[in-house]
Design a protein around this nucleic acid. Structure first.
Lengths: 136, 136
DNA sequence: GATGATCTATAGCCTATGCTATATTTAAAT
DNA sequence: ATTTAAATATAGCATAGGCTATAGATCATC
């Protein structure tokens, strides 16, 4: 492996990381809307395990990036793009957990680890996971 | 899953992330020392794909955290703790790549994805991976 | 409808991680 | 030995993502 290839690999991992939090927030907001009809900042903050202003700031980034919308002092909603991302993330999470369990990781551990792992699973790996799970 | 459990899960993923870069640098420095006898800042920066001052700053954090040592304008070396971490990271990386390949991920993709995934694989999952790879 | 509780926004702070530009030191070459 | 090239450090800046404290808006209740 050349230095450049190695560098690209790390650049890729850094990029994935910068997307990870966005994905988590979007999925969480989708969950809350499904459960409660809307996603309030306080609920988002509580579930993400961060202080309320931290959630507010993250939501501002989601809005800036076109994944969410909201009016002051009101609930947060997903744009079409946000809703699609949430669904992809949810599906990927399920697949990663299932894969981990399939290779012998205890269910609880699988759920914990998947939260971090899922953001680094490429389309190709996801496809491989799905095929493996179907016994192909 | 309760809100608190969910929050803890995210907190865990955030913690793993903060350790990830440290692990990458330590492993990289170990590689360079093995190959070249010492790890120069310029080489570290090039392989990590970052500007030289970014590497310098990261190395300062490694030193602060007890993983590396260096004198101004000289090479960077690992402490005992750093060397142990490097070896653990290297072994984990190999296992993760092997697991991915074992479930059908193409070698190249496995290498790419492993770079991000490995930092979120717990001891328990790693053990499960090893057992799975040994056909248990 | 005033009032108190709750929720949200804002201000201001911190660290980590990136960058460019530039000063300084070391190493190499004449 | 001086000069130049290369490597490293430092200064200064930006964004992301945390935090606390506090101001402001909304909601519920009397």
């Amino acid at each position: 492996m050349t230095e450049v290839e190695q560098a690209d690999r790390f650049a890729r991992a850094r990029e994935a990381q910068s997307v990870a939090l966005i994905e988590d927030y979007v999925e969480m907001i989708g969950d809350l809307i499904a459960e409660l009809g809307e996603a309030r900042v306080a609920d988002i903050a509580e579930r993400m395990g961060v202080a309320q202003p931290t959630a507010t700031k993250a939501i501002a980034r989601l809005k800036r990036d076109g994944f969410a919308t909201s009016r002051p002092y009101r609930g947060v909603f997903l744009t079409e793009e946000g809703a699609e991302l949430a669904e992809r993330v949810r599906a990927r999470h399920r697949t990663v957990v299932a894969l981990l369990v399939a290779v012998g990781v205890p269910e609880e551990i699988a759920e914990l680890d998947a939260e971090g792992i899922e953001h680094h699973v490429s389309e190709q790996s996801l496809k491989a996971f799905e095929d493996f799970l179907q016994g192909k």
